[in-house]
Amino acid sequence: MSDPDGGRGVSDALHDPTTADSRGGQGYPRSDGDRDLPLETYVLSVNDRDLPVDDAWVGESLLYVLRERLGQPGSKNACEQGECGSCSVLMDGAVVASCCVLAADAVGSAITTVEGLTGEGELSDVQRAFIDQGAVQCGFCIPGMIVALTDLLDRSPAASELEMREAISGNLCRCTGYGRIFAAFRQVQQERADARA
């Protein structure tokens, strides 16, 4: 869990009152390396397809690469520090925050985004439940919520309400207050239980 204290850089200068001299500069030591971005070329496996990433800055997050290079903007960028879940994707079957994954290191892993949860034009039962229960308002948190709840219901079909809340405790929503999202979870759980019966 990151604790953004210590270290120096652009945003630190925004916080740091101790710059005794009045030069603004952002406190980052300047070197030639700053002028050019170190680049990397690699291939990622996203939604069962191998997609090339060419000459990308090595520091790009998986979230950035998905959104800006690979045409998969479904995962969202609400905080880019692992504190909101809007960027959630499945990586080798586990839900992770793609903003905290170095894209160039995601090579060799199977990545599934919200766009890859269903076939073209289809809606999963989880997605339908979100629609039916009024769980969507602005929608920014929704892809991450859908990924996290899809994963939970697949892993733990009989999850209790408390387990569900804990499983999505890393997915923030600012619009709904979560009530209708919990209702969507219950709808899917009930439907799947009925189908098994």
Binding site: M1, G9, S11, A97
Partner: peptide
Amino acid sequence: TDFMVEVNFGHRR
């Protein structure tokens, strides 16, 4: 999870 936050914030290059 620690490293990427610093990169995303511009703390680390």
